[in-house]
Amino acid sequence: MTELSSFPITRRWPAADPGKLQLYSFPTPNGVKISIALEELGLPYEAHAVDIGKDESWTEDFLSLNPNGKIPAILDPNGPGGKPLPLFESGAILLYLAEKAGKLLPSDPALRYETIQWVFFQMGGIGPMFGQLGFFHKFAGSEFEDKRPRDRYAKESKRLLGVLEKRLESRQWIMGDEYTIADIAIFPWVRTLKVFYNAGELLGMDDFKSTMAWLDRCLERPAAQRGLSIPPRE
């Protein structure tokens, strides 16, 4: 049996089956990227809820796996060379899982890097900008009388949606006919922008018709429907 007891995180979130990949996450846009990918890939895994509302990602045990204190993180008992591999950052995890399973990432080198660039587009642009807009539009920042911060992030979020819209014109998926980790990286954030941050009207999201149709296609996938609620909230 694979031994994971040397990893402190397993003290707080013990593995029922140490031979399976361990996912430490919460159903946020970044968190569900990994559960959706795992469901698509069919890799056996266990999901552990790290409640960020209770600051569980800042506990000593979690920080031993991710010193940046953010979900998601994984512990793969069957990593490279047959050794356990701890890994954090959702983009890095998506890339690792796709390469491990040989799916969701084109084998052609040029297409592979093109896919990765769109994952980085989400990591560097869509995630940070949409998240800031959510703060200033829905959460504590919405109480600020000065709306310039909200408007700044709304303008940039709308621009990013425009980039996505142009990419998706006459395309089924980000990479054309093939559903990849680029779609998985991006669509949870677009969904959150509309249905959780309630920014659809602010940004005129229904005008981005190719993007909204793509989002519907993503949400129709059974793996996406399962992954969006893994791990479940209490």
Rank of each mutant, 00 (worst) to 15 (best):
N66G: 10
E56T: 05
F26V: 11
G79H: 07
D61C: 05
F62M: 03
E40Q: 13
S25I: 09
P72I: 01
P77G: 01
K70F: 03
V32M: 14
E39N: 09
V50A: 02
A49N: 13
A92I: 01
I36R: 09
D76H: 10
G53M: 13
A37G: 10
S35Y: 06
A73G: 15
I52M: 10
E40N: 08
T28A: 13
A47G: 04
I36E: 04
A49L: 15
I71F: 12
G82E: 07
D76W: 05
P77Q: 06
L94W: 02
L75F: 05
D55R: 13
P84T: 07
N30R: 13
S25E: 04
D51Q: 09
T59V: 02
E56F: 02
P67V: 06
S25D: 09
P44C: 03
W58F: 15
K83S: 10
L63T: 10
L41E: 00
P27Y: 00
L41P: 03
I74T: 06
H48L: 03
E60K: 15
F88L: 06
N30S: 14
D61E: 15
P27M: 00
G79S: 01
L63W: 00
E60L: 04
D76A: 12
V50L: 05
L65V: 15
L95T: 14
L65H: 08
A37K: 09
P72H: 07
E46P: 11
G82T: 12
L85G: 13
I36Y: 04
S25A: 14
I93V: 14
L85V: 12
I93G: 09
G31V: 05
N30F: 05
P67D: 02
D76K: 13
G31T: 07
S57M: 14
K83W: 00
G81K: 10
I74L: 07
S90G: 14
S90V: 10
L94H: 07
G69Y: 08
D61L: 01
G42L: 04
E39M: 02
I71Q: 07
E60C: 07
Y45F: 12
G42M: 04
A37D: 08
G79L: 07
A92N: 12
E60M: 09
E40K: 09
P80R: 10
S90W: 01
S90F: 06
F88P: 09
K70C: 06
G91K: 12
P44A: 03
A47L: 04
L75P: 07
F88E: 00
I34G: 03
E39D: 07
F88G: 07
I71S: 08
I93Q: 12
L95R: 08
E39C: 05
A49P: 01
L95M: 14
K70E: 03
L87I: 09
G82P: 12
G82H: 13
G82C: 11
Y45S: 04
